[in-house]
């Protein structure tokens, strides 16, 4: 186990193993997202209250899940980097941030658009919406902070600290619908009970969620590989790799 983690921390080993894993996640992402989209858009029955506007759910929920999961991943990667000085963890954290920001934006945008026909307003300063907006600012903060230092080590440490502190916001987002009065409906999926919607509605959602997670993993592997080449460009194994033509 420890040997495995140690090897995972070696950029050269990570570069090799990620090349093998990456295609599987791309295939899974494409398959799940295409199936889930067709199913959710054309085949799932319309909601008896919301009609067809409920189909926004199939992009809103996966994006919101990913927005939060990516921030947690970034915070964990930051912790791993700070404690064990594993550079690959920092590289992964760096490449994750823009996708996390994009996912937060998608969930806010689709939520606002969905709010118009459903709540009669596109924005309310309520707990769930506000804490998601804070998440977007945290992502932008992490990205800006990385760009603000000339020393890479300082930038990495500052971004790690902000991610680790900012992760406090995640349980606030999660429990905001229970702690405060809010327009937002409670969790769609919980571990303890079955979803409160028919199978033909939540199954495509499950596919979309899994597809978005696969997409995140595939993209992170791909971009971490680029980041490895960039930061390790003076290492002999990278030169040999380039000389060999790949």
């Amino acid at each position: 186990m420890w040997a495995f983690i140690h090897k995972l921390g070696s950029p050269k080993w990570f570069y090799r193993i990620s090349a093998k894993l990456q295609p599987w996640f791309w295939v899974a992402a494409a398959g799940l997202i295409v199936t889930g989209s067709l199913w959710g858009l054309a085949f799932a029955p319309a909601d008896y209250q919301q009609g067809n506007s409920f189909r926004i759910l199939y992009v809103h929920v996966p994006a919101a899940f990913l927005a939060q999961s990516i921030f947690v991943s970034m915070a964990i990667a930051g912790l791993v980097y700070m404690v064990w000085k594993i550079k690959v963890a920092d590289m992964a954290a760096a490449v994750m941030a823009p996708l996390g920001a994009a996912m937060t934006f998608i969930s806010l945008f689709s939520g606002a658009v969905w709010g118009v026909p459903t709540w009669g307003t596109w924005w309310m300063w309520d707990a769930r919406l506000t804490s998601m907006l804070i998440l977007l600012f945290l992502y932008l903060g992490v990205i800006a902070l990385r760009g603000a230092f000339t020393s890479r080590d300082s930038a990495s440490r500052a971004a790690s600290v902000l991610a680790m502190v900012g992760v406090i916001n995640i349980p606030i987002i999660k429990y905001s619908v229970d702690w405060w009065y809010t327009l937002h409906q409670p969790a769609t999926f919980t571990i303890t009970s079955r979803p409160a919607m028919p199978t033909e509605m939540w199954l495509p959602l499950l596919l979309m969620v899994l597809g978005f997670y696969s997409f995140f993993i595939a993209l992170t592997l791909m971009r971490t590989r680029s980041e490895i080449l960039r930061r390790e460009s003076n290492k002999r194994w990278v030169r040999e790799l380039v000389e060999e033509g790949q």
């Binding site: 858009l41 009609g51 189909r55 926004i56 992009v59 945008f109 689709s110 658009v113 969905w114 026909p117």
Partner: peptide, 11 residues
């Protein structure tokens, strides 16, 4: 069902 702008802009 009349929700085209909302659904398609989000997607």
């Amino acid at each position: 069902g009349g929700h085209a702008p909302y659904v398609w802009s989000s997607w």
